[in-house]
Amino acid sequence: MEVTFYYNGTKQTVSVVPDTPAHQYLSEVHGRRGQCGDGSCLQCTVLMGNRVTATCALPAYRLHGAEIVDINGLHNDTLYYDIRRAFEKIGITRCGEALQGLVFLAYQLLGENPLPGDEELREYSRHMTTRCVSRDEFERAVRLAGRVHTRKHRELPR
């Protein structure tokens, strides 16, 4: 069965078995493969409709008509830029495979609330199982990115 979707704005058509996980087909497009199979390692995550999605938990048929974005598709996004700068400032750059997933978690969280409280941050960080980044580092980076992004986009008084 063929599914057609947009990946970083480019139309892709892939032949899939519909009731298998989508990540094995997307790995042909972006070259990454997840390891865990349950969404916890973050390596197979993408943004689908602005929501961070584990493609190991996504049936392949759901790719059809979807708009999928990875890191390369966010180059012109100011929120993404602020998140990356914050990650670099806090020191979250050493996590190669899961970095994209961490960025997407931050992207979704700050998209919902640019200044998240402790409880909201914990809702996201509590599921982190990556060994290269601590929860505290992630939360600090998200807070920093949110503050910077909010300050930049606040209207200046006349």
Partner: peptide, 20 residues
Amino acid sequence: GKAGSGPGPIDSVQMPDVVV
């Protein structure tokens, strides 16, 4: 049926094994 939206129209392709 379509599984989601995209930046441009995608022709509705019949998926024989999946009904949406």
